[in-house]
Write a protein that binds this DNA or RNA. Structure first.
Lengths: 132, 132
DNA sequence: GTATGTACTTACTTTTCGTAAGCAAGGTGA
DNA sequence: TCACCTTGCTTACGAAAAGTAAGTACATAC
């Protein structure tokens, strides 16, 4: 009779993450999702599937290096699905998974809040600077 | 008769921010709010006013350097209020402003989502690793 | 008198990031 | 024909950001 597999996967051990705990894997996921480019990529993909270079053009300012890296993070977390067609020139498509759509919704909500409140925030900053 | 002040403050010029635009100040604010420690600080302060060292103990793993810097960012954006009492030993309190509470709510919502879904996300990652 | 706590700042090291270039193979324009 | 553009990456390198450690000025506890 077999003894139960001693390797219990990490995903089963944790009932849920705790961001306040050092070393909790949720911190890594948070880093990916809230990274400068991660935020913008997630939001951009809400409109539907995009190719690498389309993403690059939408997310103004991102380098190919960071776009590639961030997409790999998000893919690794299961938030983004990558479909590559082995043709020349290369053709690769990126889409949000259902999980990714949930995450994207949250960050989009934060992003919209910031865009809306930006004038107020800048007003605060300006006022503070003048309080020499 | 006076000519209108040519200096129109930035806050009035922008109706709202656009994160997809390179150089838009909203990107800076986003960086502050979604920085590793910014997220945790905002969430921690939702429970009420905290002192510097209390925050440091709650937000496990943050160094004094980064805690100080992040708090200055958030204060500069008007999300956190700092009250310092010039006593020895020093006593400084940090509180969310109403604006900060709004931001904190959004990031807390994202954080909770990640903590909840962490097992699923780790499951994805584990599965991918085994697809050698 | 040694240790501890407070809220920082400063110097130094390590990690991350942005910039630029390279690659493979085809299409386009002159 | 040949130079050049395109796509989706990766690699090398310098710059910027973050982490580590230590210093500061007292006060209180032991």
């Amino acid at each position: 009779m077999k003894i139960a597999d001693p390797h219990v996967p990490l995903a089963k051990k944790l009932r849920r993450g705790d961001l306040f705990q050092t070393g909790c894997p949720s911190r890594e996921v948070m880093k990916h999702v809230t990274s400068s480019w991660g935020v913008l990529i997630l939001i951009a993909l809400r409109d539907g599937t995009l190719r690498f270079s389309e993403l690059r053009r939408r997310v103004n300012g991102v380098s190919e290096r960071m776009l590639s890296q961030t997409l790999q993070w998000l893919e690794g977390d299961g938030l983004v699905l990558r479909r590559a067609y082995p043709v020349v020139p290369p053709h690769t498509e990126y889409t949000l998974t259902p999980l990714g759509e949930e995450a994207a919704e949250k960050v989009a909500s934060l992003a919209e809040w910031i865009e809306e409140r930006l004038p107020v925030i800048l007003g605060n900053a300006e006022q503070k600077r003048s309080e020499t």
